[in-house]
Amino acid sequence: MAIEGADIVKAAAFLGAGISMGLGAIGPGVGEGMVAAKACEAIGKNPKEAGLLTRTMLVGQAVSESTGIYSLVIALLLLFVV
């Protein structure tokens, strides 16, 4: 297998993109699930506030999502820009 400088750099960028998005997806997935579990608990305890609780859940999850989006941005930069 012929390995040249440009080739190995591209190969590392592709591998890095996969690792970035793959590992970066773990945290938001777990964190957002935790939020949803607690939102269900809160709705079970106080169903009258279901609307408010769902809204709070979504805002919290959106913030937790941000690190996943950073991973996606870095992965796309590694694939298409660098």
């Binding site: 793959g22 938001p28 997935g29 699930g33 269900c40």
Partner: peptide, 17 residues
């Protein structure tokens, strides 16, 4: 690797929910 690692967190999170 990407789809594999990326599935771990959402799988656990969906289970928590």
């Amino acid at each position: 690797l990407c789809t594999g690692l990326g599935g771990i967190g959402p799988g656990v999170g969906n289970g928590m929910a």
